[in-house]
Structures are given as structure tokens and as C-alpha cells.
Simulated scan of single mutants.
Amino acid sequence: MTDNLRKRDGVDMAICERLKLFRESLGVDQKAFAKLTGTAFRTYQDYELGNSPPKIGFVQKFAEIGGDPTWLLTGQEPSSGVPQGPARTEEAPPLDIGLLSSITGMLEEWLERHQRRMEPNQRGRFIAEAYAFCMEETQHSQTPAAEMAPRVVERFLRLVS
């Protein structure tokens, strides 16, 4: 599945488009998918419309029902080429909630300290990219992702400041 990043009013729509694609592959409407993931219907609509990035708990539920969190957040296909969605037989790697929380906390702290704002989609994209980078680098080094995260976030923040 190729992921062409499209923009709507300058906002990266990739995460919401992948979310909709996955939901439709299950053959359920928004209300049923929201219930399936334990998410308020309006909150789920905001995720799918790109009004706000999915919260960590939602991404965890997404993984529990067979979705690939890395694919959802970054658009990166698994190296095995296994298709996404419910037909997938290989289990997704476990989502490191601690790492996601750590990256989110570092970003929030930096934004507050520097009195900066970041749109929800930008924030979600930042967190997803930092997470994916930490996970990829962990495969190539002996450094655990949690130890790598502060350096990665600091470098990513230099790019946006």
C-alpha cells in the first residue's frame, strides 16, 4: 500500500486517511469503530477528519484489534510486506506506550517552556516520526529507545524551532 501524503488546507492528512482506510477494511461505520476502540464517537470523528491526532490509548486499542500502530502513525509498511488491516496474520510489534508518553511529555514541556503552539496534526506527526526514528535506530544500535528519545526529540525540535 503506497502512502501518498496529501494536504488539505496545509494539514497532513495521512494519519486520518489511513485510519479511515483501516476502518473501511473492517466494513464498519464510524460509530461502530468508535465503540470497538472504546472511543467517544465525536472524538473518533475528529481523528478521522484530521482535527486532532489519535491519543496513545486509542493507538493501543487500534493495535489490539489488528491494526499496525507504526503504519497508522507513520505510513511505513512492515519490511515483511504483510498487508495492513484485518487480513494481516503477522502480529504487530508491541507498541511502546512508555516511549510514546515520554516523547509526548518532552514535546509538551518544550512547547510550554518556549511558549510555542503546534497544531494537533503537526504534534501527532512529530510524535509519530520521533517514535518511528527511535524504534528504527534501536534496531541498529545497542541503545534502548527510551534512552535515545531525549536526544532524538531535542534534535527534531531544533528542526521546528
Rank of each mutant, 00 (worst) to 15 (best):
R117V: 09
T143E: 10
M118V: 05
T104H: 08
C134L: 07
I127A: 01
A146K: 11
H114W: 06
A146H: 12
A132L: 03
A130P: 02
P144V: 13
E129R: 15
M148D: 04
F133T: 15
Q122H: 14
G124L: 03
Q142H: 13
M106L: 15
A149E: 01
G105M: 03
N121A: 14
E129D: 14
Y131D: 01
E137C: 10
A149P: 01
M148F: 10
M135W: 03
E108A: 11
L111R: 01
Q115E: 12
E136I: 12
A146M: 14
A149I: 09
M106Q: 14
E112T: 11
Q139I: 14
W110P: 00
R116I: 01
M118Q: 08
S141W: 08
Y131L: 02
Q139A: 15
E147V: 07
A146P: 00
E109K: 08
E109P: 00
L107S: 03
E129V: 13
M106D: 09
A149G: 04
F133L: 14
E136N: 13
Y131I: 07
T104S: 11
E136D: 15
A146S: 13
I127S: 01
A132F: 09
R113H: 13
G124Y: 03
R125E: 03
Q122M: 11
E129Q: 15
C134A: 15
E129S: 12
E119M: 12
E137A: 13
R117S: 14
A149F: 05
Q115G: 02
G124E: 01
R117I: 07
E112N: 10
M135Q: 15
Q122F: 08
T138Y: 03
R123Q: 14
T138V: 12
R125W: 03
T143H: 05
I103D: 00
Q115V: 06
A132I: 06
S102H: 12
E129Y: 08
G124K: 05
P144F: 12
E137N: 11
E108P: 00
A132V: 06
A145I: 11
T104R: 04
E112V: 07
A128F: 04
N121K: 11
P144M: 08
L111C: 04
A128H: 07
Q122W: 06
G124Q: 04
L107R: 00
S101T: 11
S141Y: 09
P120D: 05
R116A: 09
P120A: 03
S102P: 00
Q139V: 14
R116L: 11
Y131G: 00
W110Q: 04
L107A: 07
M118H: 02
F126I: 07
E147I: 06
E147P: 00
I103K: 00
E137Y: 09
W110T: 05
T104Y: 06
R125G: 02
A145H: 05
S141L: 10
F126M: 04
L111S: 00
R116F: 02
E136C: 05
R117E: 14
Q122V: 08
A128T: 08
P120G: 07
H140S: 09
R117D: 13
E109H: 12
G105W: 04
E129N: 15
R116C: 01
L111Y: 08
R113I: 05
G105I: 03
E136H: 13
H114E: 12
